[in-house]
Amino acid sequence: MIEKLTKEYLDDLLVRLAHHSSAIEGNTITLNQTVSIILNDTIPGSINKREFYEVENHKQAFEYIQHNLLNNEKLSLGVIKEIHRLLLDHLDFNRGNFKNISNAIVGAEFDTASPEQTPNLMYQWLNNYEYLIENAQTEEEKVRIILEKHIEFERIHPFNDGNGRTGRMIMLYSLLENNLPPIIISKELKPRYILGLAEQDTNLLYDLAQPLIEKEKDRMQKFQNKIN
């Protein structure tokens, strides 16, 4: 799919992903400031250094997944680790590696995987994802599988930090790899999104995602119309 998307649309997609995915994690940089950082290489005044990199790093991670998808690179543990390494540049000393310390999710009533469990769980996660996607028959099945695996990824919480941003970038990778429209979860939808993750409710996330997919199809078409 990615080879059919216009540069303007991809720029728009990147800006929205960087802004909303970071905002879900508490980043306060505005959408307009994100445009300045991502597209204009301009740093607006009085921006927190960490928040700047949380947004800015989406650019190099997004360029990486574009390159991979154009070269038909399948999702792999190596790809997942590299996405994390790029997203956590300047932010985490252990970037690009699975966690080496135990971590937790604020407000969660379950334990994330231990550092010792994580490599094997992620290996199983990927194998199961590949099997389910290969045997899916419809677009809806594929979207549901990707959302279900997103929930599982976040519960494993395989990295020291940046699991939310990494998980949403992986979800984008999976959707585009399977010729599906992107899903950009806006910061306004955070309460429902977090509830879906906490309750392991794929149906809730699918109900949340379905109108976003339809809006994204329309947005893609509008950008396509501009060059016709």
Rank of each mutant, 00 (worst) to 15 (best):
N48R: 08
N48P: 02
N48D: 14
N48C: 05
K49E: 06
E51M: 11
F52K: 03
F52P: 01
Y53W: 12
Y53L: 02
Y53E: 01
V55M: 06
E56S: 14
E56I: 07
H58N: 14
K59P: 04
K59I: 10
A61H: 01
A61C: 06
F62V: 08
E63D: 12
E63A: 11
E63T: 07
Y64T: 09
I65P: 00
I65W: 00
I65H: 00
I65Q: 01
Q66G: 04
Q66M: 10
Q66N: 13
H67Q: 14
N68Y: 06
L69R: 05
L69Y: 05
L70Y: 14
L70P: 07
L70F: 14
N71M: 12
N72K: 15
E73D: 11
K74C: 06
L75G: 02
S76E: 11
L77F: 02
G78S: 14
G78I: 10
V79E: 05
I80A: 04
K81N: 10
K81P: 06
K81I: 05
E82F: 02
I83K: 00
I83Q: 00
I83T: 01
R85H: 11
R85I: 02
L86F: 10
L86I: 09
L87V: 08
L87D: 02
L88P: 04
D89Q: 13
D89C: 08
H90I: 03
H90E: 09
H90D: 03
F93Q: 04
F93Y: 05
F93H: 04
N94I: 02
N94D: 12
R95C: 04
G96K: 01
G96I: 01
N97K: 13
N97S: 11
N97Y: 11
F98P: 01
F98R: 00
K99D: 00
K99N: 02
K99C: 01
N100V: 13
I101P: 01
S102T: 06
S102W: 01
N103F: 03
A104N: 07
A104S: 12
I105C: 03
V106N: 05
G107K: 09
G107V: 09
A108P: 01
A108R: 05
A108N: 04
E109H: 14
E109V: 11
E109F: 14
F110Q: 08
F110V: 10
F110C: 07
D111A: 12
